[in-house]
């Protein structure tokens, strides 16, 4: 936990008013997103596919695809401004102080070299270890990632390893430089559930061990609930709700968060109600005069559709982008179902 007797930990990453355009300048896929990550804190980003989660992460890593660009806002990492940072600056940050793991570990490894060599190479070139030490350190790191027989894994090629083992190797590479911030974008989505649990536990362990701050992205609320201190809910390129994970998941204050919770696999295994959100999110970049969720919102009024809605700070420490936040008494579907499960 980032909070201690000495007060909240220092801010490590500050994203302010971030805007990202894709495929031509007019299409704004991330529309003024602001958030902070403190040292050692785990922040989760959830939202439907296409809501801008990956773009936001990639901009923090400085690896936006061609055709995508930061068109507004600032990103500050421990005093360094990341927007427009020259290549030399990135070399001192990426893979060292900021690291990342994605959904498809295989594509981040070279298929023609044993995985251990790739890890040792990283330790040697990027982190200046002597060749001999690099090998020993690599084996130790592989073991620390929960890989059994690390000596053998060291010599294996990517195609010889399962998805879960590959993700552990990529995690080993990511944390080899003792980063301060780890970005995990759908890092466990492709894994079998028993392996996902192990990798999530490993991530939680790494956090505790190393005081690592994490930005975890998932379309699955339950994965975020597993180990994030705070959660950011994205909808159609905007932040619609942000706050402490448990508070947000137990008592959502934005109608979209509540809808997400209702459709998610909540608590009870025995029988889950199958709720749906009618309609589709607006097209990426659509310019709407009012709330972007209005077409799917059960509480929408005429005003919602015609006037822009601001993200407002709530007395309970949350931020919510809903004009009716004070009048709505949302069900907190998650909590209701949990009670049902207990009976």
């Amino acid at each position: 936990m980032p909070e201690s007797a000495a007060g909240p930990a220092e801010v490590l990453l500050k994203v302010d008013g971030l805007r990202i355009t894709v495929g031509g300048e007019r299409t704004e896929a991330v529309r003024g997103v602001s958030f902070e990550v403190r040292r050692g804190e785990a922040v989760g980003i959830v939202g439907e596919s296409g809501s801008g989660k990956t773009l936001a992460c990639r901009s923090v890593l400085g690896v936006l695809a061609p055709g995508c660009a930061v068109s507004g806002g600032t990103i500050d990492f421990d005093g360094t401004s990341l927007v427009g940072l020259p290549r030399r600056g990135w070399e001192q940050l990426r893979g060292t102080r900021i690291a990342a793991v994605f959904q498809d570990p295989a594509s981040y490894l070279n298929p023609s070299y044993p995985v251990g060599h790739q890890l040792a190479e990283q330790l040697r070139v990027k982190h200046g270890r002597a060749r001999r030490d690099a090998r020993a350190d690599a084996v130790r790191l592989l073991a620390a990632m929960g890989l059994h027989d690390p000596e053998r894994v060291y010599r294996q090629y990517p195609h010889q390893l399962s998805g879960g083992m590959l993700q552990r190797v990529v995690l080993a590479i990511a944390v080899s430089g003792d980063p301060e911030l780890l970005i995990a974008d759908e890092a466990t989505t492709a894994l079998d559930v028993t392996i996902q649990a192990e990798v999530l536990e490993l991530l939680a362990g790494l956090r505790a061990e190393r005081g690592l701050a994490v930005i975890a992205v998932s379309h699955d609320l339950a994965v975020i609930a597993e180990f994030c201190d705070r959660v950011l809910v994205f909808y159609a390129g905007e932040l619609v709700e942000a706050g402490p994970t448990q508070a947000v998941l137990h008592a959502p204050r934005h109608p979209y968060t509540e809808a997400l919770l209702r459709v998610a696999s909540v608590g009870s295994w025995e029988r889950r109600s199958l709720a749906v959100i009618d309609g589709q999110p607006p097209h990426v970049g659509a310019e709407l005069p009012g709330c972007r969720f209005a077409d799917r919102c059960a509480f929408a009024t005429q005003q919602c559709r015609t006037r822009p809605v601001a993200l407002t700070e709530q007395p309970d420490g949350r931020s919510v982008r809903c004009r009716r936040v004070d009048e709505l008494a949302l069900s907190g579907a998650g909590a209701a179902t949990a009670a049902g499960a207990a009976s």
Partner: peptide, 14 residues
């Protein structure tokens, strides 16, 4: 093990 491994919104018992 499958059931115990499934992530849960209300916190999984690791």
């Amino acid at each position: 093990l499958l059931i115990a491994s499934a992530p849960d919104i209300h916190g999984r018992d690791r």
